[in-house]
Design a protein around this nucleic acid. Structure first.
Length: 564
DNA sequence: ATGATCTGCGCC
DNA sequence: AAAGGGCGCAGATCAT
């Protein structure tokens, strides 16, 4: 019993939907949509749902208890293809191209946090606008552009991974990240003292501020104002170039300690304090918007409460439900491994084979210590040119010429204003600076030269960061399939499901009995992702996998910060 | 008042 | 002696 292979959904006004079922139109009411989707999803492998934008279709289906197996997200694919150097842009452009360029995802959080009565976003939302976009025509143009590409295999992988990522993102917002408000409050109390009355600073902050003011003889000092703080420091004979923590910590003065502690705790209070908890955590879940492809490199972005920078000190509050576990997995040294693969550097791949790439670089004789290896590899990927990082890069280049040359070429292309591409064909944006317009014989100003170099560092990093992002997207796409297979029955949130994705790390919330199976699935998906993208190239993606009750149980600072 | 930009810092 | 890539967010400051 097999169903249709592909169903394209198109809105036609406020309540009407047209479904092209393998090309044959069926007319539906919006209210009948979930039944329609459920019926076709149950037939065989389920169709590929083709729609303008996952954020405009999938949340309602999830709310109705459904889950779809695969989709094609025309908005995300449009953005990919529009920028890819592997695509003939002429095949892609049409009368609605600009409208597709401007289509933005629908936000769950800004709608929810908006004013009473639905908020401006709801009224402003472009149902009309989106209904006017011709999804079938866009789909046809995209398929034609893909078919004509000399690298269509890679682009099709990228399109599939990006669309699957859109499903994962919607499911993560739907299920929410499990968050224990009581644990969070206890952590806040331990750091900041009891919750202060509204509008007042926590007692610990007030005391630290008083100590800093006293030590500087500046009774009205506002430590949040860099200018004010610099003035106060100058009055006691200190001349730091800026007021960053690292700079202040070099100073020898009794005000420094309370200032730094105040800075750390006031940030915790402002970014993730009681107000954050009240705004973002409801019924034990934190539900930010996840935005696949939200960063030009293809990394995800997130909106609402700073989901991608949950401070380490609060991670104990991210805790599994009773009878459930969190499976936390991160890839060891993802970006240098991806660099080895995309540059075809078998020596760097060999250095990675032992599990610790940095140690492998040391064992190859390129550098003396693990921390030198880290400096060298990160320096090469970020574009360090001077100091210890730059010197280490020279050592790296002698031992791993292919990997380093790959980066140098990306940087050189960027400095010339050219587009670079990830492994699967995501293109970098074009630079906008004045330097791109200059005739070759015009002398280059110092400022323009700095800008060129800066753009070169961006394109250098783009090929690694972006290729790593598409590996990671493939990883979670494959993992999503595995988790569904493991789960047995029930809705997405009743089975093992992804709750957070952080560039090279995933959190899966799972019934305790399935946790070990989930851990295996996470490893298996990483292995399959490596083969899917890099074939037989001998690079592995080893994971640190922890099963625990909270995110903090997985804490592993083996690689945190610069080793001494 | 409102919005853009800067500084600083959390995360990768 | 550090330095370098990507984000989001808060608060201060500047511009309108």
């Amino acid at each position: 019993m097999t169903g249709p292979r592909q169903v394209l959904l198109q809105r036609r006004g406020p309540d009407a939907v047209v479904a092209l079922v393998d090309g044959a139109p069926e007319h539906l009411q919006e209210a009948d949509l979930s039944r329609f989707v459920a019926r076709l999803e149950a037939a065989g492998a389920g169709p590929r749902w083709v729609w303008d934008d996952t954020t405009r279709w999938y949340p309602a289906l999830l709310a109705a208890g459904l889950r779809v197996r695969r989709c094609l997200d025309l908005r995300l694919v449009h953005r990919l293809l529009r920028r890819s150097p592997l695509v003939d842009q002429g095949l892609l452009t049409g009368p609605e191209t600009a409208a597709w360029d401007e289509l933005v995802p629908r936000s769950a959080t800004s709608a929810a946090a908006g004013s009473a009565g639905g908020g401006a976003e709801g009224l402003f939302d472009l149902h009309v606008h989106v209904a006017a976009l011709d999804a079938a025509a866009e789909h046809a143009a995209q398929q034609a552009a893909l078919a004509a590409s000399l690298q269509r295999g890679r682009l099709q992988l990228l399109v599939a991974a990006e669309s699957a990522a859109a499903l994962v993102a919607a499911e993560m917002t739907h299920a929410g990240l499990p968050w224990r408000a009581d644990v969070h409050e206890a952590l806040l109390a331990a750091e900041l003292g009891p919750r202060p009355p509204a509008g007042e600073p926590p007692a610990v902050l007030a005391a630290l501020l008083a100590r800093a003011r006293e030590a500087l003889g500046a009774p009205s000092l506002n430590p949040d104002s860099p200018a004010d703080l610099l003035r106060a420091l100058r009055r006691v004979g200190l001349e730091p170039p800026d007021t960053r923590s690292g700079t202040l910590s070099q100073l020898d003065h009794p005000a420094v300690a309370p200032l730094l502690e105040h800075r750390r705790l006031s940030r915790l209070h402002a970014a993730n304090g009681w107000r954050w908890l009240r705004e973002w955590v409801h019924d034990g879940r934190y539900r930010p918007d996840h935005l696949p492809g939200g960063v030009v490199s293809g990394r995800w972005a997130a909106q609402g409460g700073g989901a991608l920078s949950v401070p380490a000190v609060l991670r104990p509050a991210v805790a599994a439900d009773e009878g459930w576990r969190l499976v936390v997995a991160d890839v060891a040294q993802l970006e240098p491994r991806v660099l080895a693969a995309v540059s075809g550097d078998v020596d760097l791949a060999r250095a990675a084979a032992g599990g610790d790439l940095y140690q492998g670089v040391v064992d190859s004789g390129a550098v003396a210590t693990r921390s030198d290896a880290k400096l060298a590899v990160l320096g090469a990927m970020y574009g360090a040119t001077a100091g210890s990082g730059g010197r280490m890069v020279e050592h790296l280049a002698r031992r791993y010429p292919r990997a380093v040359e790959h980066l140098e070429l990306a940087a050189a292309a960027g400095e010339c204003g050219e587009v670079v591409s990830t492994w699967l064909g995501r293109g970098s944006p074009r630079p906008g600076g004045a330097w791109t317009q200059q005739a070759p014989d015009v002398p280059v100003s110092e400022a323009d030269l700095r800008e060129r170099r800066s753009w070169g560092r961006f394109t250098r990093n783009f090929v690694v960061q972006g290729s790593a992002a598409e590996w990671a997207a493939s990883w979670i796409a494959l993992l999503r399939e595995e988790l569904w297979r493991i789960g047995g029955a029930g809705r997405v949130e009743q089975r093992p499901h992804l709750v957070l994705f952080l560039h090279d790390e995933v959190l899966v919330h799972t019934p305790a009995a399935l946790a070990e199976e989930v851990a295996d699935a996470v490893r298996g998906a990483a292995e399959r992702a490596g083969r899917l993208l890099y074939g037989e190239f001998p690079i592995a993606f080893p994971l640190d996998v922890h099963v625990g009750s909270s995110w903090a149980d997985a804490a592993d600072d083996a690689d945190a910060g610069a080793p001494a």
